[in-house]
Every structure is written in C-alpha cells, then in structure tokens.
Design a protein around this nucleic acid. Sequence first.
RNA 1: UCCUCGAUAGCUCAGCGGUAGAGCAUCCGGCUGUUAACCGGAGGGUCGUAGGUUCGAAUCCUACUCGGGGAGCCA
Length: 431
Amino acid sequence: MTTKTSIDHIGDYVGQTVCLEGWLYNKRSSGKIVFLQLRDGSGWIQCVAVRSELPEAQFSACQNVTQESSLRVTGTVRAEARSQSGYEMSIESVEIVGHASDYPVTLKEHGVDFLLDHRHLWIRTPRQRSILKIRSEILLAMTEFFANNGFTRVDPPILTPTSCEGTSELFHTKYFEEDAFLTQSGQMYMEAAAMALGKVYSMGPTFRAEKSKTRRHLIEFWMIEPEMAYVTHAQNLEVQEQFISHIVQHVLENCSAELHVLERDVSKLTSVTTPFPRLTYDDAIAWLQENGHEISWGEDFGAPHEAAIASAYDRPVFIEKFPTAIKAFYMQPDPDRPEVALCADLLAPEGYGEIVGGSERIHDYNLLLKRFEEHHLPLEDYQWYLDLRRYGSVPHSGFGIGLERTVAWICGLEHVREASAFPRMLYRLTP
RNA sequence: UCCUCGAUAGCUCAGCGGUAGAGCAUCCGGCUGUUAACCGGAGGGUCGUAGGUUCGAAUCCUACUCGGGGAGCCA
C-alpha cells in the first residue's frame, strides 16, 4: 500500500513513492510530456507524466484529464529547482476519481457577478483559499488571546425577542406564535455573562436588514464581542490594542505564503504595534476642520471623514469620547463631561473603516432607567437587563469587532464579500 | 431609499445607424520542461425584456428587469 500524504508535507518524502489525492488545477502538455498541476487544499504541486515511462492508457488519461477533475496521483517525489515549491512528482499512475466537464471558473478573468454566482467553485482558487485560511487563522489567534487572558467563551442566542440597540433594521421571523428577530448583537447577553464569569467573549453571526451596498457591508457577518466586569474605558482600549496587535502578529508569523498569494504589502502590517494612537472626538473634529472638512461638533463622522483620519496613521487609531447624543443609550457618560460617552471606535488603516466599536456600559440602575425612557424603549422587554444593575452591579466594558472587515484589512481586500465563504449581500442570497 | 455605471458567444470584452467580431474555454490536430504554455483548424449568438424613431437599430429614445460602484446606517 502506497503512503498517502498531503502536498504541504511533500518535502518529507523526497525519493519515495507516495499517493496524493486532490483536484486538477491546470494542465499543460506537449506530445510526449504532460504537466498536471494538482491541488489538495494544503497546497499545489506539479506532477509530470512522460510518455516513454507510462503505459499508453495511463499517459492518455493524463493528456485528457480536465480542469478540476478529482484525481489520485501516485508517483515519486523529487526535489526540483525549476518548481516554485521546490518539489515535483514523477507520475507512476493516475486514477480519475470524478470527471469534471466544462468547468465554469476558468483561469482567465471573470466578472464579479459571475464569480459570486459560482462562489461554491470560486473558493477553489489560490486567492480565495488564502483568504479563507487567513480568516481561520485570525479566529484561532483570537481564541488564543482570550484563552491566554482569562476569558470564557459564551455563545449568546441568535433568535431574540427584541432589538439590542433599538436602531438597526432587524430580520423578522416567527417563533411559533411570537415574533422573533435575528440578533444584531449579543452584547446585552454578554453583559449578563460577564457578571457570571468575569471576562467573556462571543464569536458568531449577526444580521442587519439594512439596505447597505458598499464594499464594507454584509447583511450577515461575524462579530466577536468580549465583555469584561470591573474593567474601565481606559483598560478596555488597552485590551483592544493588545488583541488587534496579537492577531496581526499571528497572521504575519503563520500565513506568509497566503499573504504572498494575496500580494499583501506586509510592511502595512508589521507597523501595527502597541500603543495605538488615541484621538478624542473633540481632537478629531478640530483636525477635520483644519483639513478642510465641513463638520461641526455634535455630528457623526461620515465614511470620508473616517478615511481621512485613518490615512494619517500607519496603524489603527482610536477615536474616543463621542457626544452621548449620537451614541448608543447604554454607554457610560464621562463623569467629568456628561455630554460625551466613555466609548471608542477603532479605525483600521488604508480606508477599511471602523473595525471595532466599544464602550464602558452604564452600571447605575437609575441612569440606565432614565436612558430607557429617553429612548422610548419598552421597559417590560428589558427587565432582565435592568436586573444586572439591581443585583451587584459593577463598572464593566466591552467591544465588538467585525470579523470580515478585519479579514479584509489584514488581507488587503477590495471588498468584504471575499472575506466570507458564502457572503450574504443585498440582493444576493445564493449560493 | 438616493446618486452613478453597466447588460453582445460558456467567460472577458470590442463593435456605437448599413451582412455579428476577438481572446480564452470546448472539440480535432501538432509539439519532450510547460508556468494564465504555444501553433493550426472547427463548432458556438432571439446583442437583458417590451415599446418607439428610421428605408434600415446591438448601435438613437422611453419604460421595465437584473447587476456593479458609492452615499446614508453600521462592524
């Protein structure tokens, strides 16, 4: 029985005969030699069939095999200077597992619409594979950071009875006889979990029924939401910058091949070290006004404002202490200046926009009650949330980070849709 | 929802009032080191849909459908 292996381990088998199981990425041939480029998910290798060295049936199978047919290839591994990976396989036998005819996603250029219609096949290409690998490594780095810093993972519900923030449009569904909505944030549940377990985090999908149609928006996206008891606004920012720099460092250390496929300028990532610059909302408004933007105190930033500020730095930048009036109801006011909240947005470099939003939460029962009234939120739906301030309330903080935006930034993508295996976008639910 | 751009072969596009084109993919043939291989040949089309202008419309006009990019909202 021939040893089976995967392409990423091929260097351990030089001079030996092994079997690889994969798919045909591309083929080139002349009359008496055929080059099969095999991929198996772990990498690529060129397999060479020579007419004089193979039975005629085996050689003609190599000549006729089509793009993306699945193959078992048995042969001898050689070190090969002409190969990019440094290795090649001399084919001894080929078994076609599944024939592919008229594979739609050719190696030439395609339009976005066509590629998205064929997303289930598009993800086989080197570029898309690299993105999905890096996404997976980012989630691993996040998990690692949380495990090393005393966090417990808690998974909040996806079906919820009400809005968490009362702002965004929600997807509506039925829960037997009741109305239900797909979650837009697990934050309130994570606040409850933080009172139980101290430091907690969630990872999972969230949904926004907004008709957003830009390169930074998906309808369904993943959010990672840490929540920490007894943690203040200032400490929250420190956790965020350590968290982000850990992720970037992990990708730099573990994904250099994938970053190379993506032609990512890694100097834009090596500069991401702590501390990150902190700009108050006041500073940001003043800076924008000095740089010719028409904006006044009290207004929220638009995408062009965020891009202008972010482009002034070589690493993510915090903008903190926004006016209370334009931020979520649950954010703790600054005790020295109640008109601003103890919150911060983290803007990614290179125009990728807001990747993190966080704040210290209101812990005082009466103040939170007042906010519910000001925002006309139905108290009966939120009694459990108010309970957290009735029974041993403590100062606490947390943040939410958008996974696809983070992946898009680290990978240098044009659009967040490539950061998801099967993106849900406005007017696009399939595949 | 608003602004803007687009829809021609399986794919990417050219043609912009006068007989529907190219490259790639597919099929056939050639080539012993190819790297989005190359060379020769073949098949492949209700020019998004519906109206209108014109002797004549893929081309000009109107509406609609579908999609891209952006704004707002946010992560």
